[in-house]
Each structure stands twice: as C-alpha cells, then as structure tokens.
Simulated scan of single mutants.
Amino acid sequence: MDPIVLAAGTALVGAMATDAWQQARAAVVDLWRRVHADQADGVGSELDAVHTRILTAREAADDATEQALVGAWRLRLQQLLEADPSLAQDLRRLLDEHLVPALPREEASQVPSVVMRAETHDTSRVYMAGRDVHIDER
C-alpha cells in the first residue's frame, strides 16, 4: 500500500474524533468532488456515519473497531490513488494541510511519514523506495 495512503487513512480516522472534524471532512469531500463529483455526497454521508462509529469506539476503548475503520479508509484511498496516480500530490496536501493539523499532537506524531529527496550530478544514479528495493545491475 502506498505510504501516503497509510498516513492519510490513519490521520483521517483520527481527525474524526476531534473538534476540527468538520473542516477535515469538508476537505476530504472537496477532494472527492474534484475527482468524482458524482460520489462526493455519498462519501460525505459515509464520513458522517464513520464519525459516529469512531466516537463510539473511542468511548468504549474499542481499538479493534478503530483499526478496522482505518483499514477501510486506507483501502478506499488506495483505490482512489490507483485509479489516478496523479492524485498523490492532492492526497499529500490533504494530509499535510487538513488531516494532520486536526489531530492532537500525540496522534499527529504517530502518523507515518515518508519524505525522500535526491539530487544527482553528471552520470550518477539515485534509487529511492518507500519500502524494500532490489537492484540487480549485472
């Protein structure tokens, strides 16, 4: 699963339990409206339903339900990204500008993040990966 999806799914569900949820929700629905306008209202309704479930799960200290909701939204975001890989920047912006700022500091520090930068000169090569990489240059 794409690292940005892992982070966004975690932050999205975490933001649902905060006072800043309505602003984060609006940003998620706006992303869907730009990409799949016909699905935006349905996504908004789903977010409202999950918001209620996450509040109930947190009140009951039900970590299993919370993790299931995180997994469901990670899958949903992964499908969105697979359908249009150019959305990675939009998803990163959603994460950085709306989801992570909505989280309490201790939760925000637990959102996985991968930042990679590289610079090459002349005939050098750079190999970057968010996970395992195997390079065979025979």
Rank of each mutant, 00 (worst) to 15 (best):
A108P: 03
W73K: 08
A88C: 09
E137M: 13
Q78T: 14
V70I: 15
V35K: 00
R53Q: 14
D2E: 12
S124D: 06
I54F: 03
V126P: 00
A68Y: 10
R138Q: 10
T10L: 03
V29Q: 04
L87G: 12
V43P: 07
W32G: 08
T65P: 05
A17Q: 09
G130S: 05
Q39I: 05
E119K: 05
I4R: 11
L95K: 03
V13G: 02
A57C: 14
L55Q: 11
V111T: 03
L87W: 08
V115D: 13
T10C: 02
M1V: 12
V50W: 07
R92C: 00
L77N: 12
L69Q: 13
T120F: 00
L55K: 13
A72F: 05
A8R: 00
Q23K: 04
D90F: 05
T123S: 05
G71C: 14
G44W: 04
A129F: 07
H98Y: 06
A15E: 01
R131Q: 10
P3C: 00
L80Q: 07
S45D: 09
A61Y: 11
R58D: 08
Q39L: 13
R125A: 12
I54Q: 09
A72G: 12
A15L: 02
A108T: 02
A57V: 10
R131M: 06
L12P: 06
R76M: 15
A68S: 14
P101W: 04
L81D: 10
L99Q: 09
R25I: 01
A108Q: 07
D122C: 00
V126H: 06
V70F: 12
V13P: 03
G42P: 08
D122R: 04
P104M: 00
A24P: 02
A8M: 04
W73I: 04
D41A: 13
W32R: 13
L87K: 11
E66W: 12
Q79N: 15
E119W: 01
